[in-house]
């Protein structure tokens, strides 16, 4: 665990629950971690609560969700207690989020140039002219070389990889110190995926940034992240350095690794995960 003093975000006993028809179901059941200037992978299968954890940090859960935590501290502030207008200033400004599919995150009826310019004007309070030149710089930073040509395009006219880089350009307008990336490369082709990951690395090299990298892809997280948390049924069952993922001890993590087809370790038959009810509690 990262030393508390270095933590950008510190979470203790995060719980997210939904109640419907008198029944309460807990989607996140006591998640605790600290994230410093590092790439922290959060791995889990569908329904494990990994996305819910990311959204809880952004306070972007539907109003039906009940979020509690012993501590949800970001740069010395308690995010849970922050009034919504202040939270809105944190969101996008100090904590940014990238989602899987840029097609759903970008405004479909506004060209991408105007979207970046708008972001610059809101967050940096720039004039339209300054915002435009800032937008061009940002596009270059995410390796879009012909920014002039790209700015007038609408989201449906750009490829997935281009869309994701535009999202990143908008995200870094305000220099966030924490980035929540929820499956940021899952919808991308592998050649583009590498490019997006390199851009994230370049940004982190410029200033200390915590990256919470939510993914289902064990091979990717193993290579890209510094540390990994494994989530199962709303809890973190194991935490370890990413390059030691193969030494995982929890039977769920072991099961996942055995079930994964691997080029570097071919086997005749994949193992089938046998879920143990005891994992629910640890």
């Amino acid at each position: 665990m990262t030393d508390m003093t270095n933590a950008i975000l510190s979470l203790r006993d995060l719980r997210v629950s939904f109640s419907s028809m008198g029944r309460v179901s807990e989607a996140v059941r006591g998640v605790s971690f600290d994230i410093g200037n590092e790439k922290l992978g959060l791995i889990g299968e569908s329904g494990s609560g990994k996305s819910m954890t990311g959204r809880a940090v952004m306070r972007l859960l539907p109003s039906a969700a009940r979020v509690t935590a012993e501590r949800m501290q970001f740069q010395g502030r308690d995010l849970l207690q922050l009034p919504e207008p202040e939270m809105r200033a944190v969101r996008g400004h100090e904590i940014a989020m990238i989602l899987q599919d840029p097609k759903f995150s970008l405004n479909p009826v506004m060209n991408v140039g105007d979207q970046i310019i708008e972001t610059c004007r809101i967050h940096l309070k720039l004039s339209r002219r300054d915002a435009r030149s800032r937008a061009m710089e940002l596009l270059e930073k995410v390796h879009i070389r012909d920014a002039e040509r790209v700015m007038p395009l609408y989201p449906h006219e750009v490829s997935g990889g281009m869309g994701q880089r535009i999202m990143i350009a908008m995200m870094i307008v305000a220099r966030p110190s924490l980035i929540v990336a929820d499956e940021p490369t899952s919808a991308l082709d592998v050649s583009v995926r590498g490019q997006v990951l390199r851009i994230l690395d370049e940004l982190r090299a410029e200033q200390p940034t915590g990256l919470l990298f939510i993914s289902h892809d064990l091979n990717l997280v193993r290579r890209f992240c510094d540390r990994v948390l494994i989530m199962y049924a709303g809890r973190i069952v194991e935490a370890l350095p990413a390059d030691r993922l193969d030494d995982a001890e929890h039977p769920y993590t072991r099961g996942l690794l055995e079930a994964l087809p691997r080029l570097d370790r071919p086997r005749k038959r994949l193992a089938v995960l046998k879920r143990d009810p005891a994992w629910m509690e640890g």
Partner: peptide
């Protein structure tokens, strides 16, 4: 494919991506 004995650089790139490199 497993040993990486592929001729085309593009095939190599796909293989490396599957290993989590890239």
């Amino acid at each position: 494919l497993i040993s990486g004995n592929l001729e085309q650089p593009y095939s190599q790139e796909l293989r490396e991506a599957a290993l989590g490199l890239a």
